[in-house]
């Protein structure tokens, strides 16, 4: 009667179907790591000013590239998400009563995130497009 299939240890089974808080937590971690990785590059390019303004200009010229501009939009997405979600977490940390309204709060924060992102993406992708055409 039993259908038996043997699988290796690497089969972890199903993903835990958790609350949306689980996914916002995972995104918070991913965007956090993404932002800190950018920070390393940022420290390097800013340190270039130590060799004079020409060196700084030469290094930052690498950003005048449509692909980098699109990546920069990704950075804005990460920073925006991480900071807004951080505010959300702080809010419910200080006001435990809000915990019962977490779904509404999550929807509101997602709305603010998306609404802020639309004009930002419009402007940044426009600049990337201009660079690509040149």
């Amino acid at each position: 009667m039993a259908i038996r299939s043997r699988k290796s240890k690497s089969d972890y089974g199903s993903i835990y179907r958790g609350h949306e808080g689980q996914w916002s937590w995972i995104l918070h971690r991913i965007t956090g790591v993404a932002v800190i990785l950018f920070l390393f590059a940022h420290v390097v390019d800013t340190a270039a000013v130590g060799w004079g303004p020409e060196a700084y200009d030469r290094i930052t010229a690498a950003y005048d590239n449509p692909i980098v501009r699109v990546l920069e939009l990704g950075l804005v997405v990460a920073v925006l998400y991480h900071s807004l979600n951080g505010l959300k977490i702080t809010l419910i940390d200080f006001f435990p009563r809000l915990v019962t309204r977490i779904r509404g709060i999550s929807i509101a924060f997602t709305a603010v995130f998306v609404l802020t992102l639309i004009p930002t993406a419009w402007i940044m992708l426009g600049q990337a497009w201009d660079l690509a055409r040149r």
């Binding site: 835990y16 609350h19 949306e20 808080g21 940390d93 435990p96 977490i102």
Partner: peptide, 25 residues
């Protein structure tokens, strides 16, 4: 990290995350 999985999972309907937040506070 307030993922709320615990509140969802509780078969007794305890607001687990809320209790944790109250202890934090």
């Amino acid at each position: 990290r307030t993922t709320f999985n615990c509140t969802d999972a509780c078969p007794r309907g305890i607001e687990v995350t809320k209790a944790i937040q109250e202890v934090k506070r």
